[in-house]
Design a protein around this nucleic acid. Structure first.
Lengths: 226, 226
DNA sequence: ACACCCATGTAAGGTGTTACATGATTAG
DNA sequence: CTAATCATGTAACACCTTACATGGGTGT
């Protein structure tokens, strides 16, 4: 049950929950569609897939996808492994989704969580958004404090960097406020106590998100390995 | 000459260039004053200092700072090592400052560079700012492309995350534009072809920075070890 | 006396990248 | 037929964190 990287494991399970895929495609999805937040190399991905299989959360299948169905029946082809989530894997992912440890507020971890909000219960979404917000507010506190302590002996550029960092965080807080409010609004106007919202995505409307944003460490990185 | 982490090495040399310090204080400066961009632990810092000393860029001195001057003369005290930049170290740092490799445009690397703009020649500053900008513009290209390719099959949250990431990058581009413009203005209005601007900081005015900002991956992290 | 910050270190381990090695499929 | 892209892997190494170990100084 080796703990293997929170984020990657989480993202892989989440992506495979939507549809089986092979490693190569997974990596692309990680880096482009989903991956505004982080790029992984094959050297990380493939070993990770192995351990997920070892944990029983995935199974490897010979490529039985649409076009390859016939081709696969030929002689010893090079496998082109498709990974599929097992029942245990699904269960594990759902557990990860609801498990709101203090890790979940950190930059990249948060982005990963957010990316799968479509499959997350509203209650948990709220906890994550609010946790993130208070994490950022802590940061602002510290930044302000350190600004006051050190203001006089910093040159213009350092100061500008500080200011700009703070503004960035403040922006994200405002963004979170809007999201939180819109979550609350969604809860009120929709079904009463709790609506599952956890069958399969496609439902089009999740509650109505607001129309502008703040900041979460952008870092797409290349499509190509190098 | 082991290559030891670009960023940490760079930041340490840069901080020590302003004044000698011991490790503990260095770490705090890294994480608060300067450290909007990154936190390092002692487990990283101290070994790094060792190799910098081994490279001849720093020397260790017994704590001969103001208050400790007398105290140090007493029996075998626990050293409290103060690190001071050597001439070779100064030279090396200056070389790093002007060396504009394609690394310099990446998130954290850029932030570190920016933090020491006060000791950087205007010409180099321009190259770094413009390099960073075009790096971000590449990113925007890719994001837009991937948005177009995948728009229909993404749920609202994933979309919101993408949008918000893009907006963040766009903001930083605007910020860079202002900085670049203000650098140009500074060049025009001040001395003709090139002014050194590299004696020692304290000069108060670097050219007049603009008054608002964009985004560079915020990540202060704690002051305390954990 | 005790607690709490200052201060320095080390060993083990986690997490990820690079560079390499291999081969299949598709487009020109 | 050749180049690009798809596809899978591994081994070596870079980088950083955690947890531990140690001890000085200061305040209550």
């Amino acid at each position: 049950m080796s703990r293997r990287s929170g984020i990657l494991e989480f993202a892989v399970l989440g992506l495979l929950r939507e549809a089986p895929m092979h490693g190569y495609e997974l990596r692309k999805r990680l880096n482009t569609s989903l991956g505004v937040f982080r790029a992984f190399s094959y050297g990380t991905l493939y070993p990770c897939l192995k351990t997920l299989v070892a944990n029983g959360w995935l199974i490897e299948e010979p490529g039985s996808a649409p076009e390859e169905a016939l081709a696969a029946s030929l002689a010893g082809r090079r496998a082109k492994i498709v990974y599929r989530l097992t029942a245990a894997g699904k269960e594990h992912f759902e557990e990860l989704l609801s498990h709101t440890g203090p890790d979940a507020w950190e930059d990249e971890h948060f982005a990963a969580r957010f990316a799968f909000f479509g499959q997350t219960e509203r209650e948990v979404r709220m906890r994550v958004l609010e946790g993130r917000r208070s994490r950022l507010e802590e940061r602002l506190e510290k930044m302000r404090a350190s600004l006051v302590r050190t203001r006089e002996r910093l040159d213009d550029y350092t100061l500008e960097l500080q200011r700009h960092g703070m503004e960035s965080v403040e922006r994200e807080v405002r963004w979170l406020n809007e999201l939180i409010e819109s979550e609350r609004a969604g809860r009120d106007q929709r079904s009463g106590p709790d609506a599952p919202a956890l069958h399969d995505n496609d439902s089009g409307e999740t509650g109505g998100l607001p129309r502008h944003g703040g900041s979460t460490r952008p870092d797409p990185s290349d499509d190509t390995t190098k």
